[in-house]
Amino acid sequence: MNRRCGKTLFFDQPPSVLGFAAVGGKRESEGPLADGFDLLETDTTFGEKSWERSESKMQALCAELTLQKSGVAAEELDLLFSGDLENQCTASNYTLRDLAVPFVGLYNACATMAEGLALAGCFVAGGLAKRAMAMTSSHFCAAERQFRFPLEYGGKRTPTSQWTATAAGGVVLGESGGPPYVRAVTFGQVTDYGIKDINNMGAAMAPAAVSTLLTFLRDSGEKTENFDRIFTGDLGMVGSALMEELCRREGIVLTNHDDCGLLLYDRGKQEVGAGGSGAGCSASVLCSHILPELRAGRMRRVLFIATGALMSPTTTLQKESIPGIAHLVLLESER
């Protein structure tokens, strides 16, 4: 029986990760995780004439590779959860034109990968889908022109700003198969501590990550040291420091925390401000680093907590603060 404890869902037949793939662009090919990517394209137009089409193309390539590596045909998928940062989630919508799969479009900004993975896990563990896929993408150029400025506009980035990854990641879950496994998920709640600076999204999202982590620890009775690694998505340098400080105030000393935004790039050599961000950032780190480590048995138990900043350019201009969200997935290398 699957059970619900507090706000966390525990699966007694944990869905298996059948396969996964990560696709990245030029910056990602120069980063420390490059070796883990399945495809790196230094021409970030992906041969297309608009940045929106480029992102869709990248996502399509990611879907193709993910299915291929999972040994699953598109027709065998019962559900596909996908999302991105573009208005109306168009990168996903246009990708799915060419994939005949029941499609659930998602938006939780940079937390979308954990959201999709958690939902896919629920459907498979609950017996409502035999195989389900989760996928997200983000493209630096598509995000810049939508959320900030034209690419040729001369602006100086503040030191707290983060760099949107040009990357995509996809995971297929199935009822039975090899490691890793999705053991439990916690859907987070919107948390807003009043941060208004859109160039400091790490600070806006850190409380959401802490809130979801605390909920999971309370529901499961676990301690942070029970895990090999606790990965947050896209908090960057500022958000990571804030998360560790917030945890300390709750009596938790985080010694095994890593952030996807800090893993994807080398901040010393690459100019990415406070770190990477974007829906594709945590997705590609999951598929190029976390899942391979679990599959190889180098990590056994891992928390994947992707975080999202849920503002829009309109709400920002209206001086609203930035709501944050974080979803948690417990991944294990043994069933």
Partner: peptide, 8 residues
């Protein structure tokens, strides 16, 4: 004449 270019 010009096309939008990536910043990387």
């Amino acid at each position: 004449a010009a096309r939008s270019k990536d910043q990387c």
